[in-house]
Design a protein around this nucleic acid. Structure first.
Length: 140
DNA sequence: GCCAACGTTGGC
DNA sequence: GCCAACGTTGGC
């Protein structure tokens, strides 16, 4: 099982939108590094959902329900999409500020100023963020 | 293949 | 609104 983080601008597609719809196609990624991370996702992998531009916080956890397939929104180029469904909304969202103040999270792409929209997260980082969010994963 | 110019992302 | 970081483009 692997862990990831995806960024979304909440006014474009928020975690609440995902909760409302129950499932979404994660498409439109046009960055090779991010695409390659998406291609490494497996069904069941857990994904931290981060609101960029506004909010600037991790707000929820999602799960990969369909592995990489050709992005139907790509008119040219070799791009991929995955499907995600919501797992749980964090009881206390974890802000970028908090993350930056947490020694164990300094290695995250988010902190290291990468603008990657899809990035890997370690199990320890994932667990730490859930703990900071005072949130436990629901039993499957 | 190098690298300057340009565009985009995203925090501040 | 600014601008740093990063990716892409295109001339050479």
């Amino acid at each position: 099982m692997n862990y990831w983080l995806v960024k979304s601008e909440p006014y474009v597609y928020s975690f609440d939108d995902l909760l409302r719809e129950g499932k979404t196609m994660w498409d439109g990624v046009r960055n090779y590094a991010a695409r390659n991370h998406m291609r490494a996702m497996k069904v069941g992998d857990l994904v931290l959902y981060y609101h960029s531009n506004e909010g600037l916080e991790v707000v929820g956890v999602a799960r990969v329900v369909r592995e990489a397939y050709p992005d139907p929104t790509a008119t040219k180029g070799d791009w991929s999409a995955v499907d995600l469904e919501p797992v749980i909304k964090l009881r206390r969202p974890v802000s970028l500020k908090q993350i930056k103040q947490t020694p164990q999270l300094q290695q995250m792409h988010l902190v290291r100023n990468s603008r990657l929209s899809v990035s890997p997260v370690t199990e320890a980082e994932f667990a730490k963020i859930l703990k900071m969010a005072e949130t436990e994963l629901p039993p499957r």
